[in-house]
Design a protein around this nucleic acid. Structure first.
Length: 864
RNA sequence: GCGAGAGUGGCGGAACUGGCAGACGCGCUGGAUUUAGGAUCCAGUGGGGUGACCCGUGGGGGUUCGAAUCCCCCCUCUCGUACCA
């Protein structure tokens, strides 16, 4: 490559040059089964290519993994580092509805833009493995996995109350509904029964929970998944309805409180409600159930909402003491958890207590609160005993014995639980039970832009999946993408596409018109990267054995539960089918922290968009009112006009400075505020690096030569190699960069500058700022890319100092600093310290009682 | 309410298994260079006295020769979650 050598650091020239070089020479193409090098699979959460383009949050994680990959390559690893597109999804379809543009066209355009932007950062992806979830060659295998799920009985159709969003014309998963509004668009969501594909993720609840323990994930994320799965242990208990054949089964985590059960509550959707309601109460019960169905989830879940409910007129028998208790219905009991019915223990459950207070139901106390615990909680024990207050803590059981042979008086809560459960089992009245909050995964969407199901509804009523040879089922072309407004998907308008004739049996049927949710494609993409162009199978088993599991997975915490739980579920199913060799897909997970924008608010805490803010001297004022504003970090948003565009930053400062800045801001996992001004510090640093090596004529500076380093320079070089190496290993990039700054500050002031030290430094810098590093490497006379150069080694001996400054304290106060041999032991240090006149003055003749000497650090003398 | 995480200069943040708090960078101050601005370079920069002393890691207690770091209590913020029986 012959070209003009500019004398000044010019990122706009060198960055495109090296990006083109890496891409055209396939520098980062990775080979499978390298026998010489250990494998390393480093994965970024692939983006949804939105029309807005990349935001500054994307490159944060991508830069971190890129540094790690480049570092590991130089350390001799065979690194798999791919990128692709999670490209099905609502926005492209919404755009199609609004403009008539085919979602495919929108998606392709957005992908091209994302690819351009991502490549402008110089990331070392193996672009030969790029994948796209909307490519039929990709989604045929998503459909193939669905067939495996179906055949294993893990996919089923069910009529379930779903979150129906009239504005979007589709149903949404529970996770896509926030406070009764759609996550996208914020439209109201109502409940409506509908036939839906469900995936039996609940079959895997226990394993999804248990296997979290072996994962190197942030504790917080694991905890969120545990909470989401929501395992609890307790008992199921049958209550016989008085004058009726029916039993009502309840689930409780507190079987110890059975003696305190003074009424029961059924969910308004409970199937037995109609049957047990007394004639007098039936109308009221029916009315209440209808009202409850109409109330949106948002209102139903609203905090501190007054409890409502209706008496059914029926009674049930408490199995432990044969007393009859009234049966109520109330929407504070959910049909979707447990059995949809509870025994109410107002004396020892806050919700039941509140309900009992509202409706004047009896409260009976059967646990005497633990005195210490009650005192700490500020609870009046006498009030609890009188049934005037609720106590849900520990204590000992009272009033809990019956003629039926159960006596748990005096027992602790835990012992009483065990004894009662045991008794129930012996009597055939109940048994120990485990419950999970996790529900089956609603897997259908009434949308166009998603994977079609490989499913046919045959005329004879059978519902079956297609043969694998018939894949992919491609999306039909449509003129109109609008949802029908009913539960029907846009695919219901697909004409010929709908009719299906079985090539083997000749049976005819109609294709499934629902499509899969966006999560489907991202549930297995990490496996397709292993073998992205395989036409015969989703991946080669040998390649899977070689590369899996993912060694490092980096992405935003917003996927803490959904994506990561769904992908783990699919992976376990594939594992059970013998299709993958590991039981978990992602061994180590790191969440990059969100990057916040700069925002402003006035004295009344009102937010002021950035285009209304003006800087006057050191203060920020409202452009219109002149009011002084306070600056603070806030999530980037269109409304606050504080979104930073990566293209503009690269154009002005270059990709290397951008990369360095994002890594220098702070720890990867931390939430950090973006301040464009601060990038200048990193630009300055790169300029310094440039001038350290390049003279005014553009050639290598005359100061760079073969003259040996002095002792201090050598120490600094080796200390820098050590620090950068260790920090890259642990992803502590901010401190690695500051060490490199220290190096440059020292060496750029020195002359001559040892050439091999300069070359070692360029290698250290190269994972962080690869463009400038390649350029400098080339100008130093190397013809090959430094991407595959060996990482510099350090020598611990060269870091050691002969003389170190030791702090001498008297009574813990610093009194003197003195040079001592670096290898002096505690005894020598003590001797040297006590000889020091400053120290003697501080001791002031008092007897020395104790001396603490820490080699290499300090001496502390206790006197008097 | 519950669960998780975090509180260090004007700001972003450093500080190994307890061992000189504030590395590195931004900003700011002074100086050099410059017609000016920008860029660059040099010096300074936690607070208070301004001597060699004192105070300082959200607040209060404790352990220790020694605490940002360990223990107890409290406060604040961020994220997640929400009647899960």
């Amino acid at each position: 490559m012959a070209e003009e050598k500019s004398a000044a650091y010019a990122p706009a020239e060198i960055e495109p040059k090296w990006q083109a070089y890496w891409l055209h020479n396939h520098v980062f193409r990775v080979r499978d089964f390298d026998p010489e090098r250990p494998k390393l699979y480093v994965l970024d959460m692939f983006p949804y290519p939105s029309g807005a383009g990349l935001h500054v949050g994307h490159p944060e994680g991508y830069t971190a993994t890129d540094i790690y990959c480049r570092f590991k390559r130089m350390r001799g690893c065979n690194v798999l580092h791919p990128m692709g597109w999670d490209a099905f999804g609502l926005p492209a379809e919404q755009h199609a509805i609004e403009t008539g543009t085919h979602p495919r066209a929108t998606t392709e355009r957005n992908i091209a833009n994302f690819r351009r932007q991502i490549q402008s950062f110089g990331f070392s992806y193996d672009w030969d493995r790029e994948i796209n979830t909307t490519d039929p060659e990709y989604y045929r295998w998503t459909q193939w996995i669905f067939i495996q799920l179906f055949k294993k009985g893990l996919a089923y159709l069910d009529e379930v109350p779903v979150n129906w969003c009239p504005a979007l014309g589709t149903v949404l998963a529970n996770e896509e509904v926030i406070n009764g509004l759609s996550e996208r668009g914020g439209h109201p969501v109502v409940r409506k029964p509908m036939k839906q594909w469900m995936l039996r993720i609940t079959d895997y609840a226990e394993r999804l929970l248990a296997d979290l323990d072996g994962l190197d994930w942030p504790e917080g994320i694991k905890e969120m998944q545990r909470n989401w799965i929501g395992k609890s242990t307790g008992a199921e208990v049958d209550f016989q309805v008085v004058d009726c054949e029916e039993n009502i089964r309840v689930y409780t985590t507190r079987p110890d409180t059975l003696f305190g059960a003074t009424y029961m509550v059924l969910s308004p959707e409970h199937p037995l409600l109609e049957r047990i309601a007394s004639p007098e109460q039936r109308a009221a019960v029916r009315n209440y159930a209808q009202q409850a169905a109409k109330i949106s989830d948002f209102d139903r879940m609203e905090l501190n909402r007054r409890k409502t409910g209706v008496f059914t007129g029926a009674y049930a028998v408490n199995p432990v003491n044969r007393e009859s208790v009234p049966i109520w219905t109330s929407d504070y009991v959910m049909m979707t958890y447990g059995t949809g019915a509870i025994m109410a223990v107002p004396g020892h459950d806050e919700r039941d207590f509140e309900f009992a207070q509202t409706f004047g139901l009896p409260v009976s106390c059967i646990i005497e609160p633990d005195p210490g615990e009650a005192a700490r909680a500020g609870v009046d024990t006498a009030a609890v005993l009188a049934g005037e207050a609720c106590w849900s803590g520990g204590g000992s059981l009272i009033n809990s014995a019956s003629e039926q042979g159960l006596d748990i008086n005096g027992l602790s809560v835990d012992d009483a639980k065990r004894r009662t459960t045991c008794w129930l089992e012996q009597q055939g009245l109940g048994q120990a039970a485990v419950n999970y909050k996790l529900r089956d995964w609603l897997f259908s969407r009434q949308r166009y832009w998603g994977e079609p199901f490989p499913v046919v509804y045959f005329e004879d009523g059978e519902i079956d999946v297609l043969d694998e040879s018939e894949l992919p089922v491609t999306l039909p072309e449509l003129a109109d993408f609008k949802p029908s407004g009913t539960a029907e998907s846009p695919l219901a308008k697909a004409g010929d596409w709908l009719s299906y004739r079985d090539p083997r049996t000749g049976r005819v049927g109609r294709r499934e018109t629902h499509t899969m949710p966006q999560w489907a494609g991202s549930c297995w993409y990490y496996l397709r990267y292993l073998d992205p162009r395989n036409h015969d199978r989703p991946w080669d088993p040998e390649k899977e054995k070689y590369w899996m599991p993912v060694d490092l997975y980096v992405g935003g915490a917003e996927h803490a539960v959904l994506h990561l739980l769904y992908a783990r579920f699919w992976h376990k199913v594939l594992y059970d089918l013998g299709l993958v060799s590991t039981s978990e897909p992602f061994q180590k997970l790191v969440n990059q922290g969100m990057i916040l924008g700069v925002s402003y608010r006035d004295r009344q805490q009102r937010l002021v968009p950035n285009d209304l803010v003006e800087r006057r001297d050191t203060e920020f004022v409202h452009r219109e009112t002149g009011e002084i504003l306070e600056e603070f970090p806030a999530k980037m948003s269109k409304s606050l006009k504080n979104v930073v565009n990566p293209d503009e930053i690269i154009a002005k400062h270059g990709a290397d400075a951008f990369r360095l800045y994002e890594m220098f801001m702070g720890p990867l996992e931390a939430v950090k505020p973006w301040r464009t001004k601060d990038i200048e510090g990193l630009t300055r640093f790169l300029n310094k690096v440039w001038r350290m090596l390049i003279g005014r004529d553009g050639a290598v500076s005359e100061a760079v030569g073969e003259a040996p380093m002095n002792r201090d320079q050598e120490r600094l070089l080796h200390a820098t190699i050590k620090k950068v190496t260790e920090d890259c290993e642990t992803l502590d990039f901010n401190t690695a960069i500051s060490q490199m700054m220290i190096f440059v500050n020292e060496f750029s002031a020195a002359e001559p500058r040892n050439r091999s030290a300069m070359e070692a430094f360029i290698k250290l810098l190269s994972p962080f700022a690869p463009h400038i590093a390649e350029e400098l490497w080339q100008r130093l006379g190397h013809s090959q890319s430094l991407a595959w150069e060996a990482w510099p080694e350090y020598d611990e001996e060269k870091i050691k100092q002969e003389q170190v400054e030791i702090l001498v304290q008297v009574q813990g106060r610093p009194k003197s600093r003195m040079m001592m041999p670096g290898d002096a032991d505690a005894g020598q240090m003590q001797e040297l310290a006590l000889r020091n006149p400053e120290v003697q003055a501080a001791i002031d003749g008092r007897p020395v009682r104790k001396v603490i000497a820490v080699p290499g650090r300090l001496v502390n003398i206790v006197a008097g």
